[in-house]
Design a protein around this nucleic acid. Structure first.
Ligand code: FES
Ligand code: FES
Lengths: 180, 180
DNA sequence: AAAAACGAGGATAAAACTAGTCCGCGTTAT
DNA sequence: ATAACGCGGACTAGTTTTATCCTCGTTTTT
């Protein structure tokens, strides 16, 4: 896990939407437009979440994604690893073996075990991963919903319904009909 | 602090060499050649360590760097922040404010406080930084020296002496004299 | 059967970042 | 004066991140 990227922010926020929509599948295009992010970019993130067993995909029209397990069983670490591929926080180049006094032939006592510096980095990474592993989507999803007023849920419902009909409320649809 | 880079590995290993060399200044070129890494690249790292008050520089011939304070008072976090500039682990793009149902005008209840997702990332970052803040150079330096045999220290001493004289032991010097 | 809405995946591109090089400047011991 | 030093900027190459587009196969609707 190198740097927690924007892809992870997109992914987790999408999963929170899915956790609020129950058994109904939402397409990646739905989720992208709902959040004002790039549909084509989001479409590259979801296959990773599916391979990790976090979401289940259904193909064809009216298909989309739903959570493959309860939100309480999906941790932040699961999502980060699924999207970023378990890259380490720190990649040791083993410079300790390159000391000039060895002249290209490092003795055994240098190589045994991992470098102390590397060890500290691994400890730091583990501390970070432990925090991420202890937080589930449900933990933050409920907090988010507590802040939202009742009207928000219904607004979202009507937005999705209108979108299915090819119309967006409050703006002029671009492709509402052929010219002439 | 984004991803802990190779620059940090170089920097910390150099500081460990400095912590072992007492009051004697070592130049960045010495340190680079001693460890088999790029002198020009290392030369870009040290000014950062100096501005952070980790090392003290002396200019002119026979100048170089020494630790500005005891190794036990220099933490890994100090070095990482000095070299990488306190970049966050995660940069929130505030996508929560872009929800389509707000139509570009997010209400107050969305913006209040930080996003729950961001909050988890900050917790993870803090856990990592706490580990780095609790480890000093002295902690890993002593462990390293315990592994090394007695001969290593003297070998290093002679290597440095020979280097000052413009000769490297065990190999044919490239510029030992003009041809003819 | 045709069309439309979906996911999967590849090819490509722009921007940002990392690692590394090169050069010129001022400083200082010899 | 010279050579060894630190400082700093310009520069390059390679990789990663973010994003777009296009094709393909699948599935529901018409
Ligand atoms: S050799 Fe890689 S951290 Fe020490
Ligand atoms: S809006 Fe950035 S993490 Fe939620």
């Amino acid at each position: 896990m190198a740097h927690i990227t924007t892809s992870v922010e997109y992914g987790i926020h999408c999963l929170l939407w899915l956790s609020g929509s129950g058994e109904v599948s939402l397409s990646s295009r739905d989720l992208a437009e709902l959040q004002g992010i790039s549909p084509s970019f989001l479409a590259k993130i979801f296959p990773k979440l599916e391979k990790a067993g976090i979401v289940a995909a259904s193909e064809g029209v009216r298909g989309g994604y739903r959570l493959a397990k309860p939100a309480s069983e999906i941790t932040f670490l699961d999502v980060v690893d699924a999207i970023e591929g378990e890259k380490p926080l720190f990649e040791c180049q083993n410079i300790r073996t390159r000391c000039a006094v060895f002249d290209g032939d490092a003795p055994d006592w240098v190589c045994e075990g991992i470098c102390g510096v590397h060890g500290v980095m691994l400890l730091a990474e583990k501390a970070m991963r432990d925090v991420l592993a202890k937080k589930s989507l449900a933990d933050v999803g409920t907090a988010f919903m507590r802040k939202a007023p009742q009207s928000f849920g219904t607004d979202v419902g009507t937005w999705i319904d209108d979108r299915v009909k090819g119309r967006k409320p409050g703006r002029t649809p671009k492709n509402s009909g052929p010219p002439g």
